[in-house]
Design a protein around this nucleic acid. Structure first.
Lengths: 145, 145
DNA sequence: ATATTTGATTGTAATAATTACAATTTATAA
DNA sequence: TTATAAATTGTAATTATTACAATCAAATAT
């Protein structure tokens, strides 16, 4: 899952040089939940004390460019990152900055059919993402850290 | 549409004091397309040269709090604001920061039915918004590889 | 109409997140 | 092993946003 060799395979598969910083950032991204750049920085610093904040931003940028990570942003919160790049939707908690992934192939099928040959405002749709706003009825502790 | 009296009515209707700054900011918000705070600031300054940037932020905050405006944010762009507060979706251009509103009551009905009594991850849904990613009929040589 | 009060606006300065850039170091391919 | 192209680092700059105290104005009471 967050196996080092798997990470190395993913980086090289995208033509990226493998560095300790990149491996560690990608690992922190995969094992934490929608972390911010700062959360990743703090996490990775435990292993690589010399790590620069700039490097974290650089690596996140290239991961996003290579589609190994996505950016996640709410209306109020700062930028967060997501190593889950398979198609999915998001549940946004309206009373906190918590964001959860949501997979629903059945719904995707419905949406795909609905938008087949549909071009609102002459728009060519390449992806459909849902933002489900609401509340989690069970209080749950933070996953990060 | 962007009639001054209409704006005054909206502000007072939300229990807000009516000031020239508020009227002008709301007007700029209504007649422009998902403007940033800075775009609003520059626009309003033409009429009110003494305007402070802080005031623009203050007013936008209170408009959002009173549900007279919404925040709109893409994954890369800075904060934008939207005076259209009726339920709608967004078309996000993947090759620019352009965002357009999209209304589709038929689709809303389908989604409402689909999520009736559905609580993914114990989540109580209060609103469903679509992000349609794609391109606005772009000429071929504008597409980046 | 005038005074009072409550809230809005302003200017400055601070903060937070992110980016620019030049120097240094490192991973990889020859 | 060496060359080189790319990655990392540290610093400084930039950008967006917020904090805050002083001033000012709109609504309300007198």
């Amino acid at each position: 899952m967050a196996d080092i060799n798997d990470i190395i395979r993913k980086l090289t598969g995208k033509g990226m040089k493998v560095t300790p910083q990149r491996v560690a950032v990608y690992e922190a991204l995969s094992t934490n939940y929608h972390p911010t750049a700062e959360e990743i920085y703090r996490k990775v610093q435990e292993k690589l004390p010399g790590l620069s904040f700039t490097t974290v931003y650089n690596i996140l940028d290239v991961l996003v460019a290579k589609d190994l990570a996505h950016r996640v942003k709410t209306e109020t919160d700062i930028m967060r990152y997501d190593a889950v790049t398979d198609h999915h939707h998001h549940l946004y908690c309206t009373s906190s900055d918590r964001v959860e992934d949501y997979f629903d192939p059945e719904l995707d099928e419905i949406l795909r059919n609905y938008f087949e040959n549909k071009h609102p405002n002459g728009f060519i749709i390449s992806d459909i993402k849902l933002q489900l706003m609401g509340q989690f009825n069970l209080p749950k502790d933070d996953i990060i850290n």
